[in-house]
Design a protein around this nucleic acid. Sequence first.
DNA 1: AATTAAATTTAGACAAATCTAAAAATAATA
DNA 2: TATTATTTTTAGATTTGTCTAAATTTAATT
Lengths: 219, 219
Amino acid sequence: MSFSITEENYIKAIFHLQHAEGTVSTNELAAELHTKAASVTDMLKKLKTKKLLSYEKYKGVRLSAEGKKLALGIVRKHRLWEYFLVDTLQFGWDEVHEVAEELEHISSKKLVEKLDAFLGHPKFDPHGDPIPDSNGKMAVQQHINLIDLSINKMAEVTGVGSQSTELLELLKHKNIGIGTRLEVKKTFSFDHSIEIKIKNQNAFTISQQLAQALFVKIV
Amino acid sequence: MSFSITEENYIKAIFHLQHAEGTVSTNELAAELHTKAASVTDMLKKLKTKKLLSYEKYKGVRLSAEGKKLALGIVRKHRLWEYFLVDTLQFGWDEVHEVAEELEHISSKKLVEKLDAFLGHPKFDPHGDPIPDSNGKMAVQQHINLIDLSINKMAEVTGVGSQSTELLELLKHKNIGIGTRLEVKKTFSFDHSIEIKIKNQNAFTISQQLAQALFVKIV
DNA sequence: AATTAAATTTAGACAAATCTAAAAATAATA
DNA sequence: TATTATTTTTAGATTTGTCTAAATTTAATT
Ligand SMILES: [Mn+2]
Ligand SMILES: [Mn+2]
Ligand SMILES: [Mn+2]
Ligand SMILES: [Mn+2]
């Protein structure tokens, strides 16, 4: 069976929202997809008949095994294309999400596999998110929030919590990106800001909000 | 203004059909797009209000300057993606058309320009068709049909007249591709077959049909 | 428990793109 | 020129995805 771009976007949105709770509400979906609750209800009924999810009136929705498989395929394409755009075509990581939002719907299986091979089977996309392999399996990145990193432990930035232009702008200015090595030197309880040190640079402080938007792993 | 995938496919089809005659008929378009004449009429009315073409009832259709510009942009994307698929991802040239049919609708201008630069601004796609530049200009390939090539003139294959799997299969078997150098050794008036010679290979004959499906330029 | 508030679903309508069948215009032929 | 045949357009329906407004269900408060 094949699915429309709209159907695929719904399935992917449910997949992402599902990770928090097990079940997703109509309003959550409407917000995520910038549409109205009534439209969501209509689409859920349709996707249920296609067996991509289980749905009972007023009870929220949950992807079926088949729905999950479809979602993982779309996420795989999305993240592979993002990797391609940044790694091969030299896009900035703030510019790639929208383009990947379109490219993820290109249907050719062969294209995905050839692209994956060309890129060298990358495990993580430019935002640090894991790329599912052709079987839907993805590496579990045991990264922690920078806010929870102990003092004087060397760590590497592995991911960002958002991909807004605003965040990127700030990270560029502070010279932080995926792969940057840093350690926390001091924490301030007044505003929960933290002082960090990057090799060959002076220590500087970053806000609580920024620290919460960064994920790191200890190295 | 932005256009739907369907609208873009109509514009591109008109562009291609227009090259033969100046004006395109409803039935021609219906055949090309695998749809019905009634659907074409509806769409033509719509595209006229969008000023992409001039259209009078029963009189056929012709692209406006704006329509041509849009068409050239789509053709540019189509052929750049085909080049990418063959050159970068190692697709066979028979496998790329369908995929490019989808990729040509990805809207990002920046993507097209970055892709073009990454590929080294190629002038021709894997089928020998010219790729329009960012201003819509394309190289004029003064190639001739192999059937019209004079005897003993060294020539290089620059294009194919069709991109069917059947043709590719035959060309693969005969070891002929874009760039292959050959000369005509003899022509047979009985069946209009011709004998050709490729360097370091024995001469062999090819059918009239095959010769007509090949374009060459004298080198 | 009764009332109010919030979330969700239904009812009815609309735009895009398509189709079949019938009507109208143009082209071909006798 | 009159009659067919072909092409093209209109009329009316259908599917997909969306919307607003109203009704219903569930959750939260008195
Ligand atoms: Mn998308
Ligand atoms: Mn990403
Ligand atoms: Mn297309
Ligand atoms: Mn081509």
